[in-house]
Simulated scan of single mutants.
Amino acid sequence: MVHGTARSPRLLRRMNSAALLRFALDTEEFTAGEAMAASGLTRATVLGVCTDLVAAGWLEELADSREAGLTQRGRPARRYRLREQVGVLVGVDADEAVLRVEVCSLRGRPLAERTLELEGPTRDGPARRELVSRTVAEVLAEPAVGGAPSLLTVIGVPAPVDADGASPTDDPPFWAAMNPGFADTPGARVLVENDANLAVLAEHAHRQVAHMAALLTGERFGAGLVVDGRLLRGRRGGAGEMRMLELLVGSDPDAGTTDGLGALARRWALGALARDDGSSSLRSVDPEVLGIAEVLAAAADGDVLALGVLRRLGERLARLVAVIESLLDVEEIVLCGADVTGIGPVLDEARTVLEEQFSPPWPELTASTLGREVVLRGAVALALDRLREDPLALLDEG
Rank of each mutant, 00 (worst) to 15 (best):
V139H: 06
A263H: 01
V145K: 12
D276H: 14
C50V: 07
E219V: 11
P180C: 10
L384I: 02
P173T: 12
A166K: 02
R114E: 15
A306P: 03
R275I: 06
E138A: 15
L376G: 04
T369W: 05
S39Q: 12
V323L: 15
A77P: 02
V226H: 04
A163M: 01
A379N: 09
F358K: 06
A300D: 15
G262R: 11
R207S: 14
V101P: 05
L116C: 05
V132F: 07
A213Q: 06
L247P: 02
E373M: 00
G238N: 04
C336Q: 03
S280H: 07
R230N: 08
E34G: 15
E102N: 02
G74C: 07
D301A: 15
T45R: 13
G218F: 01
E193M: 13
L387Y: 05
I155E: 05
A137V: 09
L25N: 01
H3C: 04
S281L: 06
V334F: 03
S281Y: 02
M242W: 04
G234N: 12
A255R: 13
A18E: 15
E364W: 00
L70K: 14
V226M: 06
T31Y: 00
G378N: 07
R13N: 12
M15V: 15
R267G: 07
L62N: 10
E325H: 14
E28N: 10
S281V: 12
A141S: 15
I155G: 00
V346Q: 02
L270F: 10
S17M: 12
E29D: 14
E113D: 12
